[in-house]
Amino acid sequence: MADFLSGYSIQSWLQSCPQGYLENTDFGHPAGEKEPEELLDNETFREDAIRTTVQLVVGERAALAASSGLINAAPDVGSKMFLATQTLDEARHVEIFTQRLLDLGVKKDELESVINTYANANLVKFAEVLLEKVDKQDFIAGVVGQNIVLEGMAFSVFEMMHATNEAANPKFAHTLTGTIADERRHVGFGENRIGSLIKENPKRKPEIQKMQQEMTYHMLATFADSFKANSDVVEQAQDQASPDIKPAVYHGVDLNRADATEMEAVLADTVLGEFKTRLGRIGLEYLSPAA
């Protein structure tokens, strides 16, 4: 375990993240990049971007509370060190997505009310299930909830958003590139560190699987709400797009041509597939919310 944790040291993090892929960035993207005018000038598109970004802030705030809250529950110093870097990663994500809200025209003194207005109730419940484990200082359940379930969901959502925005909104796509790199590291830690702890504590499996089931339910409900809310926007954006627009392919689906239902399906399938694989690697069985 010691060798694997040395790869997650603060020294490694400093070299790969602040002195690596974040060097010369400004809130996660190259300085000077701006949100596209077509988005800022269209009230429907702008509101949809605000709604989407609010969900990212809510998710990242939960991740910040969870990763910092798990430091004192960590059974070894190597895990504490990794969680210290993750805490700062999550704080950075909160900051860059909050900055995006400001870039989209949300006034600073209205930030909290905008976040409260648009925060998806199911996403809030998803976070509550996780933070309940963190409050109990339950390290194993907390890391599974945080680094496998939440981070696994974030990873896929960010990749999908990146595919959608790569051509249409390079500023946002570049912001997502750094967060995807961070999430990959977080998921890697979860898989590496928790597998051995699950093996040592097999009796914990049913309770942790139940948490995953509950979090998955709220996650799928969040996806359903979100895609339902923006189905008209998706249609409008596709109508206005240039016929020559390059395909934005995500797991075989062209997001520039797919409707909201297809998008929801490909995202849910991808995340659930990842859950099954990652949970299997640490010795847990995926429980469907429908079961």
């Binding site: 020294q11 910092s68 060190m81 870097t85 805490t87 950075r92």
Partner: peptide
């Protein structure tokens, strides 16, 4: 959060 990373670095 920045302080958490600083303190972790100091310990390390």
């Amino acid at each position: 959060s920045t302080q958490v990373a600083d303190e972790g670095r100091h310990l390390e």
